[in-house]
Amino acid sequence: MSQRKESGADPVKEDMSKSRQDKFEILIQGLSADLYRYAYWMCRNRVQAEELVQETYLRAWKGIDSLRDADSAKSWLFTIFRREFARQFERRRLDVQEMDDLGELPARQAAHDTSTEAFVLRRALAELPEDYREPLLQQVLGGFSCDEIADTLGISASAVMTRLFRARKQMRDLIGDDARQIKGVAT
C-alpha cells in the first residue's frame, strides 16, 4: 500500500503562526529529506539534487511570509522546487543521462538497500518517462493526493490519474523484463 503520512502526526502541520525562522526550521526538519529524495529522482545526480534543494529553500525563505496555511506547506515547497528545477534545467541544459550516478548509490551507505530487487526497481524508475515518474514520486514518496499532484504539476486530476496508471503499469512491465534478464544471466 502507498504509505501516506497521517496529517495529524505531521510536524510540518504545526502552528504556522510562529516566527519566520521557526517556520523555516519546521520546513527544514520536516521536509528536507523528502525534498532531497524527490530532487534526486528528478535529476538523478546527488550534487545537482543538493544544489537544487538548497536553492529551493533559499527561495522558500525569501517568500515564507506568503505561507499561511500549514496544510499546504509541503505542496508549496515542492512547487517552488519544480520552478527552480525548470529554471536550472533551462539554464544549464542538464543532460541527466550523462550525470546519472544511480549506479554509485548502493556503495555509498551500508544501511541503504543493496538488494538486486532494489537495484532493478531503481533502474526501472529511472527508465520511466519523466511525465510518469514525477507524479509517481509525488504520490509514493511525497504522499500527495491526486488533486495535490494536479495542482503542483498544473494539469487536471484526470490527467494525473492516467499518468499514475501508466507509470505503475510500465513499472510492472519493466521489472518483469529486468527480472527475466537477471534470471537468464543466472541460469
Binding site: M1, S2, S32, R37, Q109, L125, L136, V140
Partner: peptide, 13 residues
Amino acid sequence: LDGKLLDAMRVPV
C-alpha cells in the same frame, strides 16, 4: 510493489 518502490526511492540523504 509500492512498499518496495518507496524503499528504493529512499536514497541516502
